[in-house]
Design a binder for these strands. Structure first.
Lengths: 342, 342
DNA sequence: CTGAAAGCGCTTACAG
DNA sequence: CTGAAAGCGCTTACAG
């Protein structure tokens, strides 16, 4: 009883006078063991506080019931929420989540991928389709299922990983259509860094393309790239407001930027929406709370996490390769939308 | 070359004509292998895309270089941020994070604990000192290091896990002192559920005790318990504003509640801070952005995550049991603070 | 500096 | 229904 190391399956077996085979079965395939035997084993398990060793189990079974996920950051509610959806659904099916963040650094992402692959994950979830060459190689060599999220567009020609995500170009197009329909003619955009970020890039492209279709331009100078964060939204607006002609409508790559932009407008005494319209992307909980409410493109990110989880589970347990999927998004119009000033 | 399973250490060994022992050493203890041999092995590793099997490695070594962490939710920036700090620091030292959330349900927490313990974690991080009996038993039986965070107060008499956290009573006391010094005499509090949440409970206690010291009361009816969320902050304020005498100062258990409270005050046309003062807790990034800025107790949660990580690393690698630690907190006064109306 | 062999703690055909 | 034995893929004393 005064063991200093944790109990092993052999300790349980010894206590009840049975073989480790039977104890193992009682735990993994209870129906293969006589009820009475099973009872005694379960009691011994509780008495000793026996918890199976995951490494040994994973080695014997060839799967660890762990999923790896690498996200840009957890320090943005939108990813935290998606991870929450992913983790909760996986846990419900007996899978645990190994999580890593790379802070928008694709080299760090590759290192994270290696670290996770070295820990016996059964599958890997990545955000976006743009990754370091090494990341692709590692995943390919490991031969585990890879699921791409957040985008519905492959980046290389040879990629065949299933995608569950959003049409990021459409996000920009929805914002542009909205502004155009309100009558705006001068536009600005505040984006996260587009380098190594396909989602950010596509949002800019979609916004610009839709404007072009209507015969309007989004000059390079009117697109501000900043790291994500409230202060970046603020700095972005300061920049944009110095341009002539001054933009009357600003699309922000996500709600954090858009809220920073909104707060800065208030600091600068620019009336929103009378003088300036703003559209964000994500629909964070806070976005409907602020005054005026933020117009934004709603992304169902919690559902994304859940869908990614179920897709992965189907893949792993039924060997059914998921079909790629584009989740529906919609523009939510709130108080930051109005026609341009006369 | 057309292997359908991933390469094993034996494949690498075969390719270079050496034993698996040598390949293993080249990877784990490079200095034990002749440089030229090492080179050849590394080339073979790259060529085959060999990544060691984590389960086998963990079984042989007796440690998996994985840490488990269970938090109430990731859907609150404050925990997401702490997890980010924890994960980043651990990854820097070669440890990966297995994460789980229990949505403030201690039974779910116990299940999560079991699930993580079954996956060969080297240590476990929990939030708060109040847990299901089963959780304590599981951790004890597993004999792995346990680190308690977010609080600096043990709950049972027999607990000896190190704690790295905050003085949650002090949080409430700081709010009370602040309100008292402004001249308030009628108080309200909006708290998360205190049942099974020692942090929330202690914040209420600290607030109430400090008021009592100054000869003032916080009646039961003036403490509103709601789940965490903006809407709860809103609902809480609606309740409080119906009380007579009406509170002029409201302390909220966290910033999400406080912001909801602030937004509702604006909806109800209650002037903040002229008619109502509000203090929150956490100092979320958004709290300094809104107008008026939210007065709050700043908790260094990112640092908490980092400190927890380094403490754990010391414990695991140097066998140095961490000493418990109370992280410094401070009241940040912003626009939601003012003397009561005459 | 390198290799053969034992061992980490499970699971599961195979036999009985 | 139960047990003896092999095997999962590594690591590491031990020998050379």
């Amino acid at each position: 009883m005064t063991t200093v190391t944790r109990p092993r399956i052999a300790d349980v077996a010894a206590l009840v006078g049975l073989s480790t085979s039977t104890v193992s079965r009682a735990l993994s395939n209870p129906e293969m063991v006589k009820p009475h035997t099973r009872e005694r084993i379960l009691q011994a398990v509780t008495r000793l506080g026996y918890v199976p060793d995951g490494a040994a189990r994973a080695l014997a079974l060839g799967r660890a019931r762990m999923i790896g996920a690498i996200v840009p950051t957890l320090d943005n509610a939108i990813f935290a929420r998606a991870v929450q959806g992913l983790q909760g659904t996986l846990a419900g099916a007996g899978y645990q989540l190994l999580i890593s963040a790379h802070e928008y650094n694709l080299v760090a992402e590759a290192e994270a991928a290696r670290a996770l692959l070295e820990r016996a994950i059964d599958a890997l979830v990545l955000v976006g389709a743009e990754h370091a060459h090494e990341t692709w190689e590692l995943v390919r060599a490991s031969r585990i299922p890879l699921l791409i999220t957040w985008t519905d567009t492959v980046s290389g020609p040879d990629q065949q990983a299933p995608l569950i995500g959003f049409d990021n170009r459409l996000i920009g197009r929805l914002a542009a259509q909205h502004f155009i329909s309100l009558g705006h003619r001068e536009f600005g955009m505040i984006s996260g860094f587009t380098r190594h970020n396909d989602r950010a890039r596509q949002r800019v492209e979609g916004f610009r393309d839709e404007l072009a279709k209507a015969g309007m331009k989004l000059p390079e100078a009117n697109v501000i790239e900043e790291p994500f964060g409230f202060d970046s939204g603020r700095a972005g607006l300061k920049h944009l407001m110095q341009l002539r002609p001054r933009p009357t409508a600003v699309f922000c790559g996500n709600d954090v930027l858009a809220l920073g932009c909104l707060f800065e407008a208030q600091s600068m005494n620019i009336a929103v929406p009378r003088e300036l319209s703003i559209v964000g992307c994500d629909n964070l909980p806070i976005s409907s709370q602020v005054t005026p409410g933020l117009s934004t493109v709603l992304l169902p990110t919690y559902e994304l996490g859940q869908r990614a989880a179920t897709a992965l589970l189907d893949w792993l347990t039924l060997d059914r390769v998921p079909t790629s999927e584009t989740l529906p998004i919609e523009l939510v119009v709130r108080g930051t939308s109005a026609p341009p000033p006369l």
